[in-house]
Write a protein that binds this DNA or RNA. Structure first.
Lengths: 234, 234
DNA sequence: AATATATGACTGACCGGTCAGTCACCGTCA
DNA sequence: TGACGGTGACTGACCGGTCAGTCATATATT
C-alpha cells in the first residue's frame, strides 16, 4: 500500500542559478561577506535569533511561522534547522539567550558610597530605559504569556532572574533598613513590592501606551517616595 | 450520498429524553431535563463558553483547537458556529463576557463610614480571593498575553476595566489625602502604584506559585502600610 | 575532489470552517 | 387525543489552506 509515486516529476522549476561571472584573480575579494565560514555561520545564527525574537514577540509562539522567521533573517527555512532542533527548542533557547543579559544587571553591587535609595533609583532608571521601553520588555511579557505552556522556561526564568533579582533586592532593602533609610521592616519580606511598578510599566507599554502614555520613571520615583519618604518638598 | 446510518446510536449518552408529561398548568415544572429548546440552547452556549475559556486559558489563542473546545463542551464542532462567527470573534466575545463581572466590583462605593484604608483593604481582599486565585486571574493574564494581537480586546479592557478602575482608585486616594490618611499627594497621579501588587499576585500565581507560594494578601497589607503607615506594631 | 554548508520545493499532518443530513420538538388540525 | 408536517438545533464527515519539518540538489570552501 505504498503511495503511488506518480507525479513525482512535474514540479521541477527552471532553476537557472546565476553563476556570478567570478572574475578570475580575486579569490579573497569577498567585498561585503565578512569572513571565514565559522564567522559567517555565526552571523547567520545571530540573524535567525534576531528575526525569531521579533516574530515571537509580535505573534506569540504558536502563531509564529518559521517561514516568516527565515524570510526576515534572509535565510532559507532549512538553514534554521542547521542551528536549532525544532521550533519548540528554538523558542526555549531563544528566551534563555535573551534572558542572560537581563541577569547581568541583577548583581546589584552593594551600595558603595551612595544611599540605598540612590542605588535602587539608578537601578530602576536603567531598567526602565533598557528594558521597559525596549524589546527586552516584550520578552518579559512573552514569558508571562507563554510561561504556563513552557514550564521549562518559567522554571528557568524563576531560577535565573526572579529568585536572584528578588534576593538582591531583599539584600538592598535590608541594607536600607539597617541604615535607617527604610522604616518598614516588613518590606524585606516582600521584595516584590519594590519591583511591582516596574512590571506594571512593562505591561503598560505594550498594551495601553497608545491610549494613555505613562511616565514610568516618574511613577517609580513616587513609589520610592512611599518607601523612603519624600525626596524633597512636593 | 448519506453514509449508512448504521450505528447512529452509539454516541448518544444515556440522555433518555424525558418527555415531560407536559402537564397543562405547570410549564416551569422541569426538574432535571432542562426545558424547552431555547433554554437548552442557552445551556449549550454556556457549556461552550465555559469550555472555551478553559482551553484558551490553558493554551492561548492560537494553540487552542476548536475540536477540543467542542469535545470538552460535549458538543459537535458545528454547534460552536451556531453561536459564534469564528474563532477570533468567539475569543473576543468570551473575554468581553468574562470581563464584565470584573467591572461590577470596580464601582468603589465612596467610603461610607469606614476609613479609606479599610475600603481599599476590603477591596483588595475581595480581589485576591475572587480573582487572583481563581480562573479570573488567568483571564487577566490572557489579556496581557494576547493583547498585542487583539488590539480590540486591549482597547476594550482599557476602557472598561483599566481606566475605570484607575479613576475609582484615584478618587479613593484623593479622599484619603483629603482626610489626612495619605501623606503622599503624588500618589494620586499614579493610581497604578496602588494596584501594582495585585497584578504581581496574579502573575505570580500562574507562573511561580509552584516554586515559591506567595501570601498575596499579606503582601498587599504590607504595601498598604507603606502608603498609610504601619497598622500596628510589627 | 571532497567536504561542509545552504537552499527551497515538497510532504503530510493538522485544523478552521462548511454544509447536507438528522431528528427532537412544537403547533395544528382532525 | 393522536398524529402529522414544518422548523431549526445539532451533528460530524469533509474540504482546503497552512505550516513544521525533510531532503535532494546546488554552492562555497578547503
Amino acid at each position: 500500500m505504498s503511495k503511488t509515486p506518480k507525479s513525482e516529476v512535474l514540479a521541477k522549476p527552471a532553476q537557472s542559478r546565476r553563476v556570478t561571472t567570478r572574475a578570475a584573480g580575486a579569490p579573497k575579494a569577498t567585498p561585503k561577506p565578512p569572513a571565514n565560514r565559522a564567522e559567517r555561520a555565526a552571523e547567520r545564527r545571530a540573524a535567525i535569533v534576531e528575526a525569531a525574537l521579533d516574530e515571537f514577540i509580535a505573534r506569540g509562539f504558536a502563531a509564529t511561522r518559521l517561514d516568516d522567521i527565515a524570510k526576515r533573517a534572509g535565510v532559507a527555512k532549512g538553514t534554521i534547522y542547521l542551528h536549532f532542533k525544532d521550533k519548540e527548542s528554538m523558542f526555549e533557547d531563544l528566551i534563555r539567550t535573551a534572558i542572560v543579559p537581563l541577569v547581568g544587571r541583577m548583581h546589584a553591587p552593594p551600595p558603595p558610597g551612595a544611599t540605598v535609595r540612590d542605588a535602587i533609583e539608578g537601578f530602576a532608571l536603567a531598567f526602565m530605559q533598557e528594558i521597559a521601553s525596549t524589546r527586552r520588555g516584550d520578552i518579559v511579557r512573552l514569558i508571562v504569556a507563554e510561561g504556563p505552556r513552557f514550564p521549562a522556561i518559567a522554571d528557568f526564568y524563576y531560577r535565573e532572574v526572579v529568585s536572584r533579582g528578588l534576593a538582591g533586592m531583599r539584600a538592598l532593602i535590608e541594607a536600607g533598613i539597617a541604615r535607617g533609610e527604610i522604616r518598614h521592616q516588613n518590606l524585606a519580606r516582600f521584595p516584590q513590592i519594590m519591583v511591582a511598578p516596574a512590571l506594571i510599566a512593562v505591561i503598560w507599554q505594550s498594551l495601553f501606551a497608545r491610549h494613555a502614555p505613562l511616565d514610568a520613571i516618574e511613577m517609580f520615583r513616587v513609589h520610592l517616595d512611599l518607601i523612603f519618604g519624600e525626596r524633597r518638598a512636593a
